[in-house]
């Protein structure tokens, strides 16, 4: 594999939501939804972003597309820093970076026709004549496996899976290079999930797309991703190639997470050791000092309580990078 070029570079991304209290609405703290996240996404790859509910993965996706105000950090898209730039400038960039949403019901405007919904990115960015746009909309419908005759229908006439395809067609309309898929399958039936994931994978191969695939379904992430990042309480805990993260996880949190996935093979399933974490996820308004995972970690030491572990690359020369934020990763490997 030749050295991959970076499409999206996220550096020390922070999104804090202020908490106001009292008569004078004084700020008394902040929910640190995303607190210093760094990763890069290479051209043509799918980066899976996993973590439990509330760990900040969706916020990260929204922040990359400037749909969520940042507290700090840089986002470099194709060589251009887009963190906190003017919305009028950002608007010009939006045709290159699209989003697929979680809920196929609320993500389509019930008052617009399918043709209007899918064609909107084209008209907003003034691509083509109305005639060309109409043709492009039909081409997109065919591409996502829907009948082009549907252009005059309304969203409520479609099933969840079909609606999600409409959302995908909308995201593809302007030929973007980067797509953030925010839990695109978690609201669908299991039988439809596979169809949609395969569709996304096919489209990626066909158009050389780059995905940030946000999900909490680990087996789906393993299926579609090239690399995987694991988030916990607003920070990236581990980041590496799919096989590295799934077959030889280094971080205790990743191990616990993976141990919860059932295995289809009954013999292996019986041998599966479930790592049960104690306690709950701490509040992101007041995260623990040191390593954020230390109160629930079986291997925590004094060092973990005092010092925040840096994200370090532990792979040997020539092997794919494997980053982990744990003081004891070497000993645990």
């Amino acid at each position: 594999m030749s050295t991959p070029s970076t499409l999206v570079q996220v550096t020390d991304l922070k999104v804090h939501f202020p908490i106001y209290q009292g008569v004078f609405r004084r700020q008394v703290g902040a929910i640190k939804a995303v607190d210093g996240v760094s990763f890069s996404i290479y051209k043509g790859e799918t980066l899976g972003l996993v973590g439990e509910s509330g760990c900040g993965k969706s916020t990260t996706g929204l922040a990359i597309l400037q749909l969520q105000a940042l507290t700090g950090g840089q986002i470099n898209f194709n060589g251009q820093d887009i963190a906190g730039i003017d919305e009028s400038q950002m608007r010009k960039m939006r045709r290159h970076m699209m989003m697929i949403f979680q809920d196929p019901y609320s993500s389509l405007n019930p008052r617009m026709t399918i043709g209007g919904i899918i064609g909107e990115p084209l008209s907003v960015h003034q691509i083509g004549t109305p005639q060309e746009r109409a043709e492009r909309v039909q081409e997109l419908l065919r591409l996502v496996g829907l009948n082009p005759a549907f252009i005059n229908r309304y969203p409520h006439e479609f099933s969840g899976g079909q609606r999600q395809r409409i959302g995908i067609a909308r995201a593809l309309a302007t030929n973007p290079s980067f797509i953030v898929a925010d839990e695109p399958i978690s609201a669908l039936d299991v039988s439809i999930q596979a169809q949609v994931v395969n569709l996304l994978d096919d489209l990626k191969k066909q158009f050389g797309l780059t995905y940030l695939f946000i999900a909490h379904d680990l087996s789906m992430v393993r299926y579609i991703s090239d690399r995987v990042a694991v988030m916990y309480l607003g920070k990236v805990m581990e980041l590496g190639s799919r096989n590295n993260v799934f077959d030889s996880p280094l971080h205790p949190y990743t191990r616990a997470l993976l141990s919860a996935v059932p295995v289809a093979n009954p013999k292996k399933e019986r041998a599966r050791q479930r790592i049960i974490l104690e306690g709950d996820v701490p509040s992101p308004a007041n995260p623990p000092a040191g390593c954020r995972f230390h109160p629930r970690c079986a291997f925590a030491t004094q060092e973990c309580r005092a010092q925040v572990p840096e994200l370090r690359n532990l792979s040997t020369q020539g092997k794919p990078e494997h980053w982990v934020a744990c003081h004891h990763a070497e000993k645990l490997a």
Binding site: L67, R91, M99, F101, S106, N109, R170
Partner: peptide, 26 residues
């Protein structure tokens, strides 16, 4: 707060159009 409004923003629809083309008809 509906996702179709976020979707419109992600496409690059202007605030004015979001208010009158996406929200108002509803």
């Amino acid at each position: 707060t509906q996702q179709f409004v976020t979707a419109a923003r992600s496409i690059g629809v202007s605030n004015w159009e979001i208010a009158f083309k996406h929200i108002f008809p509803n």
